[in-house]
Amino acid sequence: MSVALVRRPLSIARAYEELQRPESGGVAVFVGTVRPDRTRRGRVVALEYDAHVPMALAALEALERRVVRRYRLTGAVAWHRLGVLPVGTAAVIVGAAAPHRAAALRACAGLIEELKREVPIWKTDRARRARRRRRPTGRPRGRAAGSRRAR
């Protein structure tokens, strides 16, 4: 069992290593990454993650204990990265290992859903407006190339 709040990159391979055991017939790993969402301030280029670390670690440990008990897991991980993370970066990895796949899959989904609800971690977006193309001044002569207006 392993929980962590870290500023270094998260490793899916290390999460799998942590979970894999001979008795674990099913291992499920979820990776949450930063999306380039559109906001009123422009396109998201990065998210900054912040946590109330002592309370977040305690909440992660409690969540992991509960999920391990509920699904009779053989292993679990709940790792979250903090700091400014560019689009495409892994921000969170949760994983569950169990003798059979159904429990591993359900536990993995439970871990991420409950983490989002219960663990004091926050993200704030860093957005950037796309540069507007300047329109040429003056009237264009004739039809613009690529114009396909039907009449």
Binding site: A51, K116, I121, K123
Partner: peptide
């Protein structure tokens, strides 16, 4: 005293 707005991790 910590102010915890709604959580948004993940």
């Amino acid at each position: 005293i910590a102010v915890h707005p709604p959580y948004s991790g993940g």
